[in-house]
């Protein structure tokens, strides 16, 4: 099941934010999105997951045309979007929030297996299962957010800034877990400001600027690495 996005245009009300985006996520692979804030990375994820009204262009996942589909249909097809801002449900216990993650019918049937999978991946969440989500630490909240996504039994997982605001050690730990999820065959779109992290996790990177893909990086050759840093930060410091 590969995701193909063609000439996607979407926005909020009359304001168009995405001016024709083309990206592709081959089955079982990871792509990374980076670029300045406010240029459309999150909007792209929201358009794919059906949160935006009337997008134009095309979104296909495997054989399904998901252009303009509602969130339920997108989730039922196996595309799970873990939104930015990690405290999803502050006044729920970790266990309740994870249970909710399996809300869609096909995930609900597989929730026992997925609980095992999630608690094996994040033993810390198992210890915290009866705690309210708002009492978790920053790293634990992010783990919970990703775990809720995994409970949805994803074929394609979209993570929006999973390491935002985390300490380097916590971040490295989380990167390891994301790697583990990827190795289980789940396709991923990862949005992050940390280009190094994306290079570590993804096969292909897209720089999103002003609602368009302004650069596509297919392998992590040093030349292109330099190019990315130059375009992204303006200069490459020695």
């Amino acid at each position: 099941m590969s995701l193909v996005v063609e000439d996607l245009r979407a926005g909020y009300g009359r304001i168009e934010v995405l001016h024709g985006i083309n990206i592709e996520v081959p089955d079982g692979s990871r792509i990374g999105l980076f670029g300045p804030n406010g240029h459309g990375k999150t909007t792209l994820l929201r358009a794919i997951s059906g949160l935006l009204q009337l997008p134009r262009g095309r979104v296909r996942f495997g054989g399904d045309d998901l252009t303009g589909a509602n969130t339920q249909r997108v989730v039922e097809c196996g595309i799970i979007h873990v939104p930015q801002g990690s405290t999803l449900f502050p006044r729920m216990t970790v266990l309740e929030a994870l249970t909710l993650g399996a809300y869609s019918p096909h995930a609900w049937q597989r929730r026992r297996d997925n609980f095992d999978r999630v608690f094996t991946l994040f033993p810390r969440l198992s210890e915290r299962r009866d705690q309210q989500c708002r009492t978790l630490s920053g790293g634990e909240r992010q783990m919970a957010a990703i775990a809720i996504g995994l409970m949805g039994d994803p074929r394609l997982l979209m993570l929006d800034e999973p390491t935002l605001g985390l300490a380097p050690k916590v971040r490295a730990d989380l990167e390891q877990r994301i790697q583990t999820i990827a190795e289980s065959g789940v396709s991923m779109i990862i949005v992050d400001q940390d280009v190094e992290l994306l290079f570590g996790l993804c096969r292909r990177l897209y720089l999103i600027e002003q609602g368009r893909v302004s650069l596509e990086v297919a392998d992590r050759g040093e030349v292109q690495h330099q190019e990315v840093l130059r375009r992204y930060f303006g200069t490459v410091s020695a």
Partner: peptide
């Protein structure tokens, strides 16, 4: 608690 996050779980 969080309408958008709820929709993203496939809740109607």
């Amino acid at each position: 608690q969080n309408r958008d996050a709820a929709r993203l779980l496939g809740i109607n």
